[in-house]
Computed example of a mutant assay.
Amino acid sequence: MLNQRKLRQVSNLDLKLLKTFLAVVQAGSFTGAESILGLSRSAISIYISDLEKRLGMKLCSRGRAGFSLTLEGQTVYEAALRLMSAAEQFQEEVNNTYSVLKGELNIGIIDNLVSIPHRTISQALAKLKQTSSEVKVNIRMSNPADITLALLEGELDVGVMPSLTSIDGLKLHPLYSETSSLYCSEQHPLFNQPDKLENIQQCSAVLPVYAEQMNLPQLFDNLDVAATSNNRDGVAFLVLTHEYIGFLPDHYASRWVDKGEMRAILPEKFSLTTDFYIATRQAQRNRRVLDVFLQALGMTD
Results as ranks from 00 to 15, higher is better:
Ile48Gly: 01
Phe293Ala: 06
Lys53Trp: 08
Asn222Met: 14
Thr228Leu: 14
Asp301Gln: 15
Glu178Val: 11
Arg263Val: 03
Leu149Val: 13
Leu125Phe: 05
Val239Lys: 05
Ser35Tyr: 00
Lys196Thr: 15
Gly66Tyr: 05
Ile278Gly: 01
Glu52Asp: 09
His118Glu: 15
Met299Cys: 11
Tyr244Ser: 05
Leu69Ser: 03
Tyr277Leu: 08
Ser133Gln: 11
Ser254Leu: 11
Thr280Gln: 07
Asn199Gly: 14
Ile44His: 04
Asn192Ala: 11
Pro208Ser: 03
Gln91Ala: 14
Gly108Gln: 07
Phe237Met: 12
Asn138Trp: 04
Leu170Asp: 11
Ser61Thr: 14
Glu261Pro: 10
Gly56Cys: 11
Pro174Trp: 02
Gly246Thr: 05
Ser68His: 09
Glu78Lys: 11
Arg263Ser: 00
Gly73Asp: 06
Ser254Asn: 14
Leu113Asp: 06
Arg54His: 02
Gly103Cys: 02
Leu266Thr: 05
Leu170Ser: 11
Leu105Cys: 09
Ser68Trp: 03
Leu238Met: 02
Arg255Phe: 13
Gln4Met: 15
Asp14His: 08
Tyr77Trp: 05
Leu197Cys: 09
Glu92Cys: 10
Gln74Ser: 13
Gln9Asn: 13
Gln91Arg: 15
Leu175Tyr: 06
Gly56Trp: 00
Ser204Gln: 08
Thr70Pro: 00
Ser254Gly: 05
Val24Ser: 05
Arg281Gly: 01
Lys102Trp: 08
Asn12Gly: 13
Gln202Ile: 02
Lys19Ser: 03
Thr228Gly: 13
Glu186Val: 13
Leu125Thr: 02
Ala33Val: 03
Ser115Phe: 07
Val206Thr: 07
Ser42Gln: 12
Leu156Lys: 03
Leu128Ser: 00
Ser185Arg: 04
Pro189Asp: 10
Ile48Asn: 00
Val235Thr: 07
Leu156Gln: 05
Arg5Asn: 15
Leu297Tyr: 06
Ser45Leu: 04
Ala150Arg: 11
Lys102Arg: 15
Leu294Tyr: 04
Glu78Gly: 13
Leu197Tyr: 10
Ser61Asp: 13
Glu34His: 08
Pro217Ile: 06
Leu7Glu: 11
Pro208Asn: 02
Val158Gln: 05
Glu104Thr: 15
Glu178Thr: 11
Phe270Thr: 01
Val76Met: 03
Leu170Val: 15
Ala296Gly: 12
Ser229Ile: 01
Thr228Tyr: 10
Ile200Arg: 01
Gln91Met: 15
